[in-house]
């Protein structure tokens, strides 16, 4: 059960990671992150079921396709409101979420039905001593760890990664240093959407693929908030906390508590640490 919590937490963490990437760069929260994940799930479905590609090609296809979608969204919708207040951007991403959810139902072969995405690590379980491990859950945990490691290397060592970090610290200064801020923002959206696609694929065996699976993004908010929006490790820790809290609430609390446990945790955390556990304290200079 602990493992189930961790695996679920990893998925939350991945969606939360998408939030954090965009937040760090542009100080806006993408309320459509869950819907990007849903779209990623559908892309994966297309390549694996309809085109019959192998699992690894499916992941690659979905991630690349979603990165393109993410960049497109940034270019078309978010760039015009660059520099507007948080509220404006929140609402515009909510609008994007609506459009994505609606569009998916209109595409032939996708529609409003629910699909299963086949994975190479299906139903197997194995035992080590007294503990039962589900292969599926281990795979989710392993793949999350791999992605996080890759992102770490990217941000730490690649030129683009460093540019992205600079942009997130101070857009104006980054622009003065010759970093094409707008293009970097676009890349970050692409990256974030790619991560969302990855999360979608990992989540697919648990929730199946359907046009409303994006609502799980709502569960990732608590994860991102608990960890602090500006913090990458925070997203991972926050995701794990929320996953575990849910798993334990489902086990030990009265029925129905599982669904709200995450939100109760969020309100409590925000009461005491208004910018999350790993968040920076904000103070306006006068």
């Amino acid at each position: 059960m602990l493992l189930a919590g961790v695996a679920q937490g990893c998925v939350y963490a991945l969606v939360a990671l998408g939030f954090v990437l965009i937040y760090k760069a542009t100080e806006t929260v993408n309320f459509a992150q869950g819907d990007l994940m849903m779209l990623g799930g559908f892309f994966a479905l297309t390549s694996s079921v309809i085109l019959g590609w192998p699992y690894w090609a499916t992941i690659l296809f979905a991630v690349v396709a979603m990165a393109a979608v993410g960049m497109l969204i940034e270019r078309l919708v978010l760039r015009p409101v660059l520099g507007q207040p948080a509220f404006t951007v929140v609402m515009i991403t909510i609008g994007v979420g609506y459009v994505l959810r609606g569009v998916v139902t209109m595409i032939p072969g996708w529609g409003t039905e629910t699909y299963t995405l086949p994975t190479p690590f299906s139903e197997g379980t194995f035992k080590v001593g007294e503990v039962i491990f589900a292969v599926q859950q281990l795979a989710v945990i392993g793949m999350t760890a791999a992605l996080v490691a890759a992102l770490y290397v990217f941000f730490r060592f690649s030129k683009l990664g460093v540019a992205m970090q600079a942009t997130s610290q101070n857009q104006l200064a980054a622009a003065y240093m010759g970093i094409p801020v707008r293009r970097v923002n676009m890349m970050i959206w692409g990256l974030s959407a790619g991560v969302a696609a990855f999360a979608g694929i990992l989540l697919a065996p648990v929730t199946f693929v359907h046009s409303n699976m994006g609502f799980i993004g709502l569960k990732a908010f608590p994860a991102a908030v608990v960890g602090g929006f500006g913090s990458v490790p925070g997203a991972i820790v926050g995701g794990l906390i929320i996953g575990l809290v849910e798993a334990f609430a489902g086990r030990y609390m009265p029925e129905g508590f599982k669904d709200v446990a995450a939100y109760v945790v969020v309100l409590v955390v925000l009461m005491f640490k208004p910018s999350g556990i790993f968040g920076e304290t904000a103070r306006k200079k006068v």
Binding site: V77, I92, G95, V96, V99, R101, G102, V103, T105, M106
Partner: peptide, 25 residues
């Protein structure tokens, strides 16, 4: 019929919202 399904309202609603924020704040 495939466009006029349940998703149409969400798409129009989302587009109107985006359109207003960008073009008529």
């Amino acid at each position: 019929s495939n466009i006029a399904g349940s998703g149409l309202q969400a798409v129009v609603f989302g587009l109107v919202l985006i359109g207003f924020i960008i073009f008529e704040p």
